[in-house]
Write a protein that binds this DNA or RNA. Sequence first.
DNA 1: ACGGACCTGGAACGATCACTACAGAATCGC
DNA 2: GCGATTCTGTAGTGATCGTTCCAGGTCCGT
Lengths: 222, 222
Amino acid sequence: MSQTQARAVSRAKPGRSRADGARSRGRILDAAEQLLSERGYAGTGIAAISQASGLPASSIYWHFKSKQDLTGAVVERATERWVEALEASEPGPKAPTDAIVAWISRSIEEMGRRLPFFMRLSLLLGLELGPREPALMERLRRGRVLIHRVVRGSLERVLAAEGIPVDAGLADEIARLAMAFSQGAFISGVLEPESIDPGRIPEYIETGMRAIMEARMAEVTS
Amino acid sequence: MSQTQARAVSRAKPGRSRADGARSRGRILDAAEQLLSERGYAGTGIAAISQASGLPASSIYWHFKSKQDLTGAVVERATERWVEALEASEPGPKAPTDAIVAWISRSIEEMGRRLPFFMRLSLLLGLELGPREPALMERLRRGRVLIHRVVRGSLERVLAAEGIPVDAGLADEIARLAMAFSQGAFISGVLEPESIDPGRIPEYIETGMRAIMEARMAEVTS
DNA sequence: ACGGACCTGGAACGATCACTACAGAATCGC
DNA sequence: GCGATTCTGTAGTGATCGTTCCAGGTCCGT
């Protein structure tokens, strides 16, 4: 369905051409992304997406074959954007350890703030759907794995480059903990806006990361 | 509505008396709690609660005046249970600092495991409903505040008893961070079961807590 | 100019949504 | 026994759910 890509190639300058399915598809995704991340899967109706995007339900079903399919596309696009933004801000492999640690703590917090859709989508849909929608869950999981890999990769490369003796699992562990904490802090902010000072989140992550790393190093040498 | 409490008082030994509304009410709450914490508010229908509880919809609407009202009662009961369990396991004010810190880290993790309903309810409903259901959100928030207060109280009392110079905000801050992290770890476990070793969560919380506390102490003395 | 691919508009489908009306069964105080 | 209270069972209400059908408009390549 929707070979609009091919058409866009053969017709480089659309000049507001026809009904413009590619643009419509994007608008549907935008509306669905916002509604899904706010109200969840069951709470978001096709009618609401239709109204928010300004397109009739039949258009939604022309571009996507079901609500599930649309949701999957939303998750995929949000994941891609998140990973792109993460990689774009990633420091080089020769950055000092301090810079990497600071980058991780800062960027995780920043992504949660600048791109809240994926954060909310991943948490809300993950909790709501569970094993009853395995296809969607798998998509969500893949997104999280991707992000984890970027974070872990930075840690690993830099620690190795500095000759710090880090076993294979440590970077993995630290990356997971950083993600878990920033998730928790994000939700705390949603539920109790006055709870945790968002500006301090990088500091918390950094302090925690260092403490765990030191504890692990101490274990190894003892 | 539902003066069953009063009846239970006047009739101490019910002996399987009549239709037994109190028991029915409990069954409805049980079913609703489970379904709401699994599928969220929009995803849980009255019909599903009726089926899971074995009672017709009219009984649900005799005990509760709306789905909102029922959800509120579910949240309230789950909160009470959590707080009770927390307080029951709380160490005395004269316990050494180590014991308190260990208790906090262990009990938060344990509550998440033994009473997952409130954790899921609070996160799922909080994310899903947002400002569109202010009454329910307020109930959720109150539950979280209660729990935070218990944790913070333990910290404060012990640190003070040991003469550790802790400014008023530090215990508060540490308690929030411990809750945020355990939330994040809980969700990580839901979304990627293999992600974080649940057995290590207390250790993570403890290490992180100590690191933050030390950092704050260093700030004060410098 | 014409057939066909692309996309929209509107009207419908049965199923399910939260909720209600009401009759009747069970048990109470008296 | 009797009227009243408490709770259940049946059968609905209109609204909204996801989804489908299809006529028709717009633009393409030929």
